[in-house]
Amino acid sequence: MKKSKKFNSERLMVLVLAMASAISILTTVGILFSILFQAIEFFQLKSFWYFITGTEWSPGQMDSRFGALPIFAGTFMITIIALTIAIPAGIGSAIYMSEYASPRWRNILKPLLEVLAGIPTVVYGFFAALTIAPAIVSFAELLGLDAAYNSALACGLVMGVMIIPVISSLSDDVLRAVPDSQRNASLALGMTHSETIRHIVVPSAMPGIISASLLGLSKAIGETMIVVMAAGLRPNLSWNPLEDMTTVTVRIVDALVGDHAFDSPDTLSAFSLGLVLFVITLILNMISLAQIRKFKTRYKISSL
């Protein structure tokens, strides 16, 4: 009698635990549906096709138009600038920490990079707007160029620095997980240290490095505070990084902070932009996870 009661309560316990782990699924589903429903409502009011391909974004007017192409272009521009900095610097840092640094240096450097990773993005945003942007304006003046105070370049630079630790920490873990036997074999064949790294270690770790870079890319696209504080509000279809540009996240914040009615197309446009953001980052994360799984199965690593 007593025993069965105990087993029942145990089963209940396990059931409660299982339900707790279902919360994570509920969250994803919740995000997807809360965005999807409002986005569908938006596309009933405004054309989906124009949203994807149109070049004029003018909310808050009588005849408002929602063509998001310049917004996507701005996001793309700032992301590219950020990754041009973050990928070489992140991978370089990872290589230094995993291959060159002595254990003592490593123990100093790793926490320092973690400090950089722990800085809130609102702080980076303030730094970009207060220090970097004016510096870029005066530097551009020196070269006889005209730069905006909320230029894409300033956001991109600071965002790049923000992403360096994202890329370097995962790349570092992956590089260190490459078996030492590969390094020793290469060195025994007379390759130099750097040749070993470039031709043996990095190619072996490539899936992990790709995964880290994609994670950095998805962070850059979804980054909000830096661009809200340092980028422009004006949708601007341009190739010049010294001009002001806006991004998907800036427009989402702008649409939801204002005093529009919740079911107006101005507010709902935030959700359609959010849907685009969700889909793109979801795809990037999926590829990133698949890459890291490839690396793990190749070298039979269970951590990471």
Binding site: T28, I31, K219
Partner: peptide, 9 residues
């Protein structure tokens, strides 16, 4: 995946 979704969402 949740860990990598942009916080604004």
């Amino acid at each position: 995946n949740l860990a990598a979704i942009p916080s604004i969402l």
